[in-house]
């Protein structure tokens, strides 16, 4: 709660800057219109106009909020203009990709921790794999998979998976190696098998490392799903809304898609945060 006021201040400052920027960027078009209509604008009229243009360079926050309200609450969920419908399509790809990425990440991490050969050969390539700008080649992956007959959710989920497995691998390798020599020795004195050591010592002690990685993975997976939607012919999803908006200059639509993606990301990450709190508290790791 101590940081409540500062955060509020910063967010407030962002809104103020946003409004000023909207006025500054949109004023040219407002004056242009007035000139063609042969009327002169007073300062207040100019401000009012910049707040209510149809295709502004930078829409004001309340315009974006209005558009989001219009496309979520007032439209039927099944309508193709509903942001909830588009958001759901993106969300399902995100969640599938996140689940696959987490699974792959944990498997790889277990392999890396238990096999020296895998540690030495796979780990450097896992790191290298992330310097390949996968987002940039996402369109190609989508097109190629489409050509093979894999379409719909899976291609997007594969891109999400590629982005989200990396933080999980790194976090889990660190976490599975977190038990110190004393604890490992204790397990040995109890004559535990490898599997038991894994389930009763290594896995529990990796939990504090797993959840922060999951948060990063979730955010990355959403980005992957959105970029994956860009080349699919702009049919559905938040990414498709972005692309369609940019084709037709519908800036308000772009910003509303962008903000709803942000809200979605915030909700997903917060959900993992709640899960983290519950799990760690029940395991007695959180005071």
């Amino acid at each position: 709660m101590r940081s409540f006021a500062p955060v509020l201040t910063v967010v407030g400052a962002i809104f103020v800057i946003w409004y000023f920027a909207a006025v500054a960027l949109n004023s040219a078009w407002a004056y242009d219109k007035a000139k063609r209509a042969d009327v002169s604008l007073s300062f207040t009229e100019m401000i009012a106009d910049t707040m209510a243009q149809k295709k502004p360079l930078l829409p004001a926050p309340h315009q974006v909020a209005g558009e989001i309200y219009k496309t979520t609450v007032q439209k039927k969920i099944t309508s193709k203009r509903s942001l909830i419908w588009h958001g759901w399509i993106t969300l399902s790809a995100t969640l599938l990709g996140f689940a696959m990425g987490t699974g792959l990440g944990i498997l790889l991490a277990v392999g890396i921790v238990y096999s020296r050969a895998m540690d030495m050969s796979v780990m450097p390539w896992v790191i290298t794999s992330q310097t390949i700008p996968i987002l940039a080649v996402a369109p190609m992956i989508i097109v190629v998979l489409n050509a093979v007959g894999v379409s719909g959710l899976l291609p997007k989920a594969i891109i999400s998976m590629y982005l989200s497995f990396f933080p999980v691998v790194v976090g889990m390798v660190k976490g599975l190696r977190a038990p110190d020599a004393m604890q490992m020795d204790q397990m040995r004195t109890w004559n535990t098998s490898k599997a038991e050591t894994f389930w009763k010592l290594r896995l529990p002690s990796s939990m504090p490392y797993l959840f922060p990685s999951l948060k990063i993975a979730m955010a990355a997976s959403l980005v992957g799903a959105i970029v994956g939607e860009l080349p699919t012919g702009a049919v559905a999803g938040l990414g498709a809304r972005l692309l369609a908006g940019s084709y037709y200059g519908q800036t308000i639509q772009i910003w509303s898609a962008l903000i709803s993606a942000a809200i979605l990301a915030a909700i997903l990450v917060a959900l993992i945060g709640v899960l983290q709190n519950i799990t760690l508290r029940r395991m007695g790791m959180l005071r």
Partner: peptide, 29 residues
């Protein structure tokens, strides 16, 4: 310190956002 305490959570939040989505807007500008 006041600004820092405000900026860190907001910055962390924005860093997790799909900023690539800004690309069409910036290309327009």
């Amino acid at each position: 310190p006041f600004l820092q305490r405000g900026l860190l959570p907001v910055g962390n939040f924005v860093a997790a956002l799909p900023i690539v989505g800004m690309a069409p807007i910036l290309v327009m500008w």
